[in-house]
Structures are given as structure tokens and as C-alpha cells.
Design a binder for these strands. Structure first.
Lengths: 251, 251
DNA sequence: CGTACTCTTGACCATATTCAAGAGACGTGG
DNA sequence: CCACGTCTCTTGAATATGGTCAAGAGTACG
């Protein structure tokens, strides 16, 4: 509902898109840029804490994150929540789970966010007119699967400390790759409850695990967020080598 | 290595494909069928227990499962294994995790399997010439994500009994939807070690959990496999409503 | 007829959860 | 300006859940 609250729509033209210009993503051809410009329907400005998509509903839109960050999650009937993944600038939202039927997960903003809005009903047109872009969407879906696979391995088979270390290192790498949180390197806002719901642990145990990482000088937790103090120690605790570097496509 | 052992190649023509004929999947247009026929490079016959894809390697192929079943998994350096999902007839293998770079997971056959082999290097051609098929591949990737999301919710937030009940009910529904294991309704072969590695539990605890489900007359475990005795009880324990029914595409 | 694999069970231990309580920061309204 | 509620983090203690170790039974297979 928050998502529908009337907000002023800024309109950034696609050829001035800060993400395209950043060089972090694959460059569009002129024809692609023209098509994407017509595919774009507007912008959605969401406040921190607001819900962008709701499990069980049918969204007519697809989104690309322009700024800010949030998370995808599912809940059980009694309220238990599992965070599935985080959405950062450049991430495409709305394809996960299903292309055409109702949403099977919710998305909530952690910080204030600006999202680029596309019409879901025109998605097939994109495949017809610009196969490269269709291919890119599949590429993004495959990348999301890769993250989910690793996350599942983490929750299923890593110890609490390994899981926590993996998550924080993972978020740090993802943030760095899109130059999010540049000032001070502090990753925020994020509460220990979010971490707990991502790791599949209780809040109390998460707190104790994070304190252990702090006492090892791997991280510092402050307010609602954290800083990486020693990424090598963190990765070593996690037994994780980091994300592969690749040129990312982008819609 | 097992995957490369020389096996006689049967050649089922695409227009006689048992899966296309089964009616469980979206029908191809004539043009699509012709293209898929040329896209298909051969068949791979894999024995139960053999490895089809290996994490860290670069596979030149994509596969569609024609018969039998197997599982996707990842391992940690010390051998801990997490099963990510199962592959059943009609499932497309090789897009999960990445389209173009090395595999981030392995695939192993549970039963003897026959797979339809495609050339990965021609995937983009498919997007160019048959946008519907490209769209279908994205659809399949989204469906895989949906399963992973639910699985992650399970491992992260459900209790051992809920997880086990969910998994068995899930496998049953998936098997039914492609008429796998029709005779006797027994889902096999599958060891309790597989179940444990899927649920993120130890073998011993998995055994105790399955015995509990047995004593509630929800399932029967026999040899290497199980039978559903009461799907409603199982779903109720899991707190799960079942998979949505949809017409599936297929490559 | 031994060997390997799967399942089973009990006993003990480790890990993680729940419950409870309190500290500190922040914003709001009196 | 202060009192109050809310939110986040922290800690200890009791408890529950699940893991590890160990051993044995049943079956299949060479």
C-alpha cells in the first residue's frame, strides 16, 4: 500500500541513466536505448521500510533498482520470515519466482529507493524486438539463481559464524560492485533482525555470533549497519572466495 | 567423467518426443519444432549415480531431461553437501547459476537418465530466431527460482518435521506432474542421506524425523525410496498448499 | 561369506532457541 | 525540557532442537 502512495515522479531519461553512465553495466546500443526508453513507464520512489511488492498479489510492473537497496522475503503463516536475497542498484525485480502469475515473495525497501518501472505486459515484446535484452534478462535470472544456490548452501550447511561471515562479505562485495554505500564503507541500514532472518537464526544467536566476529576484528556493528574491518579474515571464516567478476547486463 | 563414458546414442526425433507428446507441456509450433530439431545435438544416457555436470567446470552443453531423475548440489571444501533441487523430466539443466561461465553446482543422476543435449554456443541464436522459446527459458529460470525460494524458506525457517514433510510432498507433486514413478507411486531411488542433504539436517536426525512421519501414517519409507500414505496430513504438517498449476513451457 | 550400503536406535553433547531483563538512542508530544 | 514509548542491541539463564558417536540389523552383491 505504501508503494501506491502518491509520490512525485522524477523522470530520468534512459540516456542519462546514472547506472548506464556508471560503466558498471553493459552498454546499450542506440536501438536498445530507444526501446528501453519506450518500455520505461515511470519511476517509483519508495521510503525506507515501505513494501514494494507483496506475496500473493499480481503486479503489473517490473522494476529496475536505480538507487537505494531492499530485500526479497517470504513468510510463513505464523510470521516466521526468511529473507531470500537483497536487491541493489541495477537489479531487476519482478522476474524472480514467476513471469506471469502472482508474486511468490515480497520486496521491502531498506533505504529510500528509486525504481525504474516497466510494464510487465510488454515483456514479450522486448524478447521479440531485442533478443539481446531478452537474453540479458535470462542472464540476470541465472545470476539470481547462483546467489540463491550459494545462500542455500550457507543456510543448510554452514555454521552460524560461517554463515554470518559469508553474508556480510557477500553484501560488501555486491555493494562495492555498484558503488553503493561509498561514504565510509558502512553498509546500512540493516538491523540484526534482518541478518537473523537471512541466516535462518534467532535474533539472540545472531547477536552473539556478530559479537564474536567483532571480537575477531573482522567487522564492527554500529547503530543499524556494519563496517568491514578485515575482509580477508571474514572470507576465511566463511570459507568463501568472493563473487566472480563479470560484465553485467542490465535492463 | 562417467558422463563422458561412451554410450550408444538413441535418437528420438523431436516430433516424436515423449514429453512433447505427453501433453504435459506447451505444444511447439512447426517452426519451433524444426528449430529445436536442429538445436538438438544428441542424447546423453547416464547411469544412476553418475555425475552429469561438475561444479567449477565449463560445460559446452545444455540439457533437457527426457527420462529419469537426478539432483543439483553444491559442496563445501570439507565435503559438506547441500542438495539445491531435483531435476525431473522436462527440466532444463545448465542455465541455473550462469549462462556463459563455469558451472557453480554439480548434477548427479539418481536413476538412469536420458538427456537431450543442446549446444550452449547456439543459445543466443534461439533467442534471435524464436523469441517465444527464449521467453520460455526465462520462464523456466523463474520457476527454478520459485522452487529455490520456497526451499530456502524451508531450510531457514521450518522445523525438521515441517521441512521433511514439505520436501516429500513437493517431490510427490513434481513427480505426479510429469507422471514419473507412476507404478506404485513409490518415489525412488532416494536415500535418507539425500533427504538429509536437502533439508540441511544430519542423517541421524533425518532418520528420526522420517520415522515420526511414518508413525503418523503420512509416509512409508522402504528400501531407497518412499511412498506417500496421506498427502493431506503431510501438507498439513508442512503448512504448505502445493504447487500452482500452470501450463509449462519446455525446450 | 565377507563387504558395502542403508536404515535404525540409544546415549551424550553441541548448537541454537526462548525467555527475560536492561541499556542506550531517538523521536514525539505534553 | 522532560517523560514516554519505540526500536535496536546486549547479556544471562534455562530449555529445546539437532548433531555426533557408536553399534547393530537387514539386504544386496560379488
Amino acid at each position: 500500500m505504501d508503494a501506491k502512495s502518491p509520490k512525485p515522479k522524477r523522470n530520468i531519461a534512459c540516456d542519462e541513466c546514472p547506472l548506464v553512465c556508471s560503466g558498471d553495466f553493459r552498454a546499450f546500443s542506440d536501438a536498445e536505448l530507444r526501446f528501453v526508453s519506450t518500455f520505461k513507464r515511470g519511476e517509483l520512489v519508495s521510503d525506507a521500510g515501505s513494501t514494494i511488492l507483496v506475496e500473493g498479489t499480481h503486479s503489473p510492473h517490473l522494476y529496475t533498482v536505480l538507487s537505494g537497496w531492499g530485500f526479497r522475503y517470504k513468510t510463513l503463516e505464523d510470521g516466521r520470515r526468511q529473507i531470500l536475497n537483497y536487491v541493489l542498484p541495477g537489479d531487476f525485480i519482478g522476474v524472480q519466482g514467476s513471469l506471469l502469475s502472482e508474486m511468490h515473495h515480497s520486496v521491502e525497501a531498506l533505504s529510500d529507493m528509486i525504481l525504474c518501472v516497466f510494464e510487465r505486459s510488454r515483456l514479450f515484446e522486448l524478447y521479440e524486438k531485442h533478443p539481446e535484452l531478452g537474453f540479458d534478462i535470462t542472464w540476470l535470472a541465472a545470476r539470481e539463481e547462483q546467489m540463491l544456490d550459494e545462500h542455500l548452501l550457507s543456510v543448510g550447511r554452514r555454521s552460524a559464524a560461517e554463515r554470518a561471515a559469508y553474508l556480510l562479505a557477500f553484501l560488501n562485495e555486491r555493494a562495492e560492485s555498484v558503488a553503493l554505500f561509498s561514504r565510509g564503507n558502512r553498509i546500512a541500514p540493516l538491523t540484526q533482525q534482518h541478518v537473523a532472518d537471512t541466516l535462518g537464526l534467532s535474533l539472540v544467536h545472531t547477536n552473539k555470533t556478530l559479537r564474536k566476529l567483532t571480537s575477531q576484528n573482522a567487522i564492527a556493528w554500529l547503530d543499524s549497519g556494519f563496517e568491514i574491518k578485515d575482509i580477508d579474515v571474514l572470507k576465511q571464516i566463511a570459507g568463501w572466495d568472493g563473487l566472480p567478476e563479470v560484465a553485467r547486463p542490465f535492463i
